[in-house]
């Protein structure tokens, strides 16, 4: 796979990250996880030039860290493939870096079965990372099922926000 191609994908996704995402009900997943750090975002995306190692160092804050899923699905949607690809680059750059994929499900149905569904989503992201060269030892998965919802309500849009994988870099 062309490194340059992935690179341009990253650039594109960094630019896209600045725009509101039209499809996902939660308009800014980045904000949820890194709400306090949003000030650092733009300098990383627009400031440093291409090829600068610094760009990747700041990339964590510009990258989307939450992947959302359709009902009863563990397929990473087309618009989220770029986010995963960018994380793959980051992990390939630094073989000491490790990532934790936290899978979640909406509240419908049985709790332990939902643990299985959340795990399946985390595994889908894991597979995508591994296909792009990330070492299995760099990836940990955990499923919280329906136990840690992002949205507390019981509407369709709440459910859509809760069917997700959160990509976390343990410190």
């Amino acid at each position: 796979m062309s490194y340059l191609k992935i690179f341009s994908v990253l650039l594109l996704s960094a630019l896209l990250a600045a725009c509101p995402k039209p499809v996902v009900p939660d308009p800014d997943p980045t904000d949820v996880t890194y709400g306090g750090d949003s000030g650092a975002d733009t300098s990383g995306a627009s400031g440093s030039g291409l090829g600068d190692g610094e760009f990747f160092g700041e990339a964590e804050e510009t990258l989307g860290t939450v992947i959302y899923f359709d009902f009863d699905s563990s397929e990473v949607r087309a618009q989220d493939q770029d986010i995963v690809a960018a994380h793959a680059i980051r992990l390939n750059e630094d073989s000491f870096a490790s990532v934790r994929l936290e899978g979640h499900a909406d509240e419908r149905g049985s709790r332990e079965y939902n643990i299985g569904l959340g795990e399946r989503r985390a595994q889908a992201v894991r597979q995508l990372l591994m296909i792009q060269g990330v070492n299995a030892s760099q990836i940990q998965t955990v499923s919280f099922g329906e136990e840690r919802p992002e949205a507390m309500g019981s509407s369709e849009s709440d459910y859509a926000r809760n069917r997700r994988v959160e990509i976390k870099y343990p410190r």
Partner: peptide, 28 residues
């Protein structure tokens, strides 16, 4: 164990648990 450790339920004699384990590949 790595991955899922879930859904425990005791055997009638109380000596065993049926559990769900997922492993690193996440297949429960």
């Amino acid at each position: 164990k790595p991955g899922i450790n879930g859904a425990p339920s005791f055997s009638p004699d109380g000596r065993k648990l049926v559990v769900t384990l997922g492993g690193v590949d996440g297949n429960p």
